[in-house]
Amino acid sequence: MAEERRGEDIVSEYLGQNPHLAQWVESFRGYCETNKQWSARREFILRNMEAFPTIEPGIPSSSLDRLLSLSMVWANNVFLGCRYPQAVMDKIKDMGQGIVVEDAPVRSTRDEIIAKGKRSTSSGPDGDNCVKKAKVGPNDGDGRPAGKAAARPACQKPGPSPQAPAQHQPFFNRLYKAVAWKLVSAGGFGPNLDHYEILQSCVESCKQSLSCVFVPLKDIPDLPASRVQKEGQVCELRCSTVYMGTGYGRDESAARAMASKEALKAFQGRKVTVKICRRRYNGTDVEDVMLLDDQPRSQGFPPALSYPFQADSGEDGAS
């Protein structure tokens, strides 16, 4: 607030000193611009005029038009909610620095509304919590994905606590029952089920949610050489930080379906157990909390795609 005052004061002071400018600048005001919008845009124009040395007050020129255009871009962005290509946005971000607009309107863009509409109308496979998280993984700059769900406060210490299996075991016992009944009503475990749907609905019926993390296959270290160049996505499923399964598919949803199938396999035994195991993650061995069935395992575990027990996971979640 105070800053804005200063901004406005500077402008009016400046225009007071240069009365010839005032009239000229005023001619750029659009008919439909409100006082608030205009004073902000005027400040934008005046502040950035120096960057366009070819502008001479009172004389139309293409550099003047460029400045006016950018001022409109800025104002449209701030007041109308328009988005422009990234290069343009970067530019006006720099140029608009220091101009404070109080109480700018909040608008949702068309893309946002459409995306929201899709999420709420779509049923089943695109359940919302998953979509949100799915987006986080692949977009992470450093290629090391982290689920947003990982941001739970309890999980922010490095490595799982030794009590973790005991804490989680009762929940998974309930989940085991839910899954068993669900599979019975769906006609038994088999290849034709929508595994993700089943797993998700069971988890939700136990008042928890699944988190999915997707990584493009080629971004995963520790893979046998034969698979390195393959296209596709890998999905890792966790439920309240406990690892449930990993799957590979051509796209995210196929990978997720595969992972769910893997996870459901664990529920085929007589019971499920939560254990701390060692596995690979990001090139190193770490300890992870995993859901296992009562069968002895022949192979090792697939490398983890996310690790919710790191100290910095809080940042990831927040980003």
């Binding site: 293409s62 038009d65 460029r66 006016l68 255009s69 950018l70 409109m72 871009v73 449209n76 109308l80 909610g81 328009c82 988005r83 422009y84 290509p85 290069a87 343009v88 530019k91 608008r107 949702s108 863009t109 068309r110 893309d111 509304i113």
Partner: peptide, 19 residues
């Protein structure tokens, strides 16, 4: 599309929609 265009403000990528 060019950031240098003197009419770039006419062409937003995305725009607000008021229901």
């Amino acid at each position: 599309s060019s950031p240098e265009s003197p009419i770039i403000d006419f062409y937003p990528d995305d725009f607000a929609l008021d229901l």
